[in-house]
Nucleic acid binder design. Structure first.
Length: 273
DNA sequence: GTCCAGGCATGCA
DNA sequence: TGCATGCATGGA
């Protein structure tokens, strides 16, 4: 990987296995919007970003400072992880062998714990299009505008000032009561996300399961997408269908990277089942 | 109009 | 421990 600054852009070359469509629009993050030129715009880590992939494969982080790249986006896009090698390992599995060839370039985004946890509470019993709709309303109403029309994900402290009806007004439905208590718990420090991130997987999962409105699926999504636990393996209605292909449990080649395997299988299921 | 979506809490056996 | 049920809402 080679990183250089060109005018106001950061240009990263030599990154293999990163497809913007497959990674930014595959149901792990809900705030990226494809632009007419094929690039993606969104807000993450409190920064507005437009990212594009050049013909030669270079990643172009438009109007990005070295500071925000080093401190946030480098890790957010998981640029230091060798996905090429991971995919080779996963391809020992028959189903993934063809799936990875077909959908090459899915990465796990290392999102912020609070945004991931809150987003996946909203996600339950909901479709991706409507999850995006609700989260976009939430950010517009209670986030900070960091670029013209682009808002940060609201802090737990800000959301802790809301009542159930405020969430209802955004279309959160029956999840509103969960969100009220989640925001208040995080804002008060009763739920300590940084501490959860530092725990071993099983203990971190146990802590998340104690939260009102968080079950096994939401916990695993948060662990994988927001707490950097690559072994977390979320099973939703799509993955339940996939699991019929693994009657004897997950293959050994998934060990330690179950979550990455899951993301390929999830995408395959949504396209084919 | 009916069905479904990156499920969960609750009650009951 | 396991299973049935109710839950909000927008898109297909």
């Amino acid at each position: 990987m080679n990183i250089k600054t060109v005018k106001n852009d950061i240009v990263v070359s030599g990154v293999k296995c990163l497809d913007l469509d497959l990674t930014l629009d595959c149901g792990q993050a809900f705030r990226w919007e494809k632009q007419d030129d094929g690039s993606y715009s969104g807000v993450a880590g409190g920064y507005f970003l437009n990212i594009a992939k050049a013909q030669n494969g270079d990643l172009i982080f438009h109007n990005t400072t070295e500071d925000s790249f080093d401190s946030f986006f480098r890790n957010y896009f998981d640029l230091d992880k060798n996905y090429e090698k991971i995919c080779e390992t996963l391809k020992q599995d028959d189903l993934l062998s063809s799936t990875i060839d077909e959908y090459y370039g899915i990465r796990i985004l290392n999102q912020e714990p609070w945004e991931a946890l809150c987003s996946f509470v909203i996600s339950q019993q909901n479709n991706i299009k409507r999850i995006k709709l609700i989260i976009s309303r939430l950010c517009r109403a209670y986030g900070d505008e960091v670029a013209n029309g682009w808002y940060t994900f609201p802090t737990a402290e800000r959301l802790a000032t809301l009542c159930e009806d405020d969430f209802n007004a955004l279309g959160c439905g029956y999840r509103s009561k969960y969100l009220v208590r989640l925001a208040q718990g995080v804002a008060s420090g009763e739920i300590d996300l940084q501490k959860i991130k530092s725990l071993p997987l099983e203990e971190a999962r146990k802590e998340l399961l104690n939260i009102y409105g968080v079950g096994i699926k939401v916990a695993n999504c948060a662990l994988l997408f927001g707490f950097q636990f690559y072994s977390a393996f979320p099973v939703d209605v799509w993955m339940k269908r996939v699991m019929e292909y693994y009657p004897n449990g997950l293959p050994e080649c998934f060990d330690g990277i179950e979550g990455i395997a899951q993301q390929y299988l999830f995408h395959w299921a949504r396209q084919n089942l």
